[in-house]
């Protein structure tokens, strides 16, 4: 995180231009390893793109550097080499076209639900009243109509995720980056959240880059699934177009024969990488 990366953000306007929303071109990310000796290359020569309005999931073994890729897309991390562009132009500092849904707890614990949603709007120059009005609208949309006054510690994990989603989407960003946002939730809540996410997404079809290690989740949500190799030096090794019809009901679609066919095909590739990753983890 460089300090210069923080600057006043101009309001994000969704750009309707067709083409690529995000493009990784031969991105490599190396870190100095903890022992201080030598470099650890998390991502090597990764090329990947997300079209405007496309929902792309990236699956890979645990700890292979999926989050690193997402941090590059957000501008929180500079790639060691290679380029990242949003709508065809590179960006200095943070990616101002993107919203980021984090895996961990990202809400301000000292802010009520409605304030957590409104705060981003305030950063974008909205007046207090306006920001609160939009925030309340988003509370309604994520099913938390009367819970705006709750603090994060008073909410369940699912409610906190809903607030985080509302917080990100209220800014109307053209790109949404998601880092295993539902991995901490129990399975029922998770499927409900996935369905709700698809509902929200289908309303205005933003470009989504969704990171997960859950293949079923990836298939049921996405237009395209990208498989990453085991780390270190992870990179995409296969791509699958998910031609399942929309709108989808996440809980039901997992039983359809087409879903099983895709699952078998992708798992055939992923399994090998998972085993490699597992073997490395044991060493």
């Amino acid at each position: 995180m460089s300090e210069s990366a923080v600057d006043v953000r101009t309001p994000a306007t969704p750009r309707a231009q067709p083409g690529e929303a995000l493009r990784f071109d031969r991105v490599t990310c190396s870190f100095r390893s903890n022992s201080g000796a030598g470099l650890y290359t998390a991502v090597r020569d990764a090329s990947l793109s997300v079209d405007t309005g496309e929902f792309v999931s990236v699956v890979g073994p645990t700890g292979c550097g999926k989050s690193t890729l997402l941090n590059v897309a957000a501008g929180l991390l500079r790639p060691t080499s290679g380029t990242i562009t949003a709508f065809g132009s590179s960006f200095a500092g943070l990616n101002r076209d993107a919203a980021y849904l984090f895996q961990g707890e990202s809400l301000m614990p000292w802010g009520r639900a409605i304030d957590n949603i409104a705060v981003g709007l305030r950063f974008h120059g909205k007046s207090r009243a306006e920001a609160l009005e939009i925030a309340q609208d988003w509370l309604d949309r994520v099913g938390l109509h009367s819970h705006g006054a709750l603090f994060p510690h008073q909410m369940s994990g699912g409610m906190r995720k809903r607030v985080a989603i509302a917080q990100a989407l209220a800014l109307n960003p053209p790109i949404i980056l998601m880092d295993e946002p539902f991995s901490a939730l129990d399975i029922q809540t998770r499927q409900m959240m996935e369905t709700e996410l698809l509902d929200l997404w289908s309303q205005d079809r933003k470009s989504v880059l969704f990171i997960t290690h859950d293949l079923e989740e990836a298939i049921s949500l996405s237009d395209r699934v990208v498989v990453l190799s085991a780390g270190p030096g992870t990179h995409p090794i296969a791509e699958f177009t998910i031609d399942l019809p929309r709108p989808r009901e996440v809980a039901d679609i997992r039983l359809s024969p087409d879903f099983l066919r895709l699952h078998t095909a992708i798992w055939g590739v992923l399994k090998e990488e998972v085993l490699k990753g597992y073997a490395q983890g044991k060493r």
């Binding site: 006043v8 957000a74 809400l107 000292w110």
Partner: peptide, 29 residues
């Protein structure tokens, strides 16, 4: 929390906003 910080930066916070909305409330507690 670094996640809270990253999140608020992604939401478009300026340096002054970080101080006002994150560091100050956290320090207050």
């Amino acid at each position: 929390s670094p996640i809270v910080l990253d999140n608020i930066r992604m939401l478009g916070a300026s340096r002054r906003d970080l101080l006002r909305y994150v560091y100050f409330p956290s320090a207050t507690s």
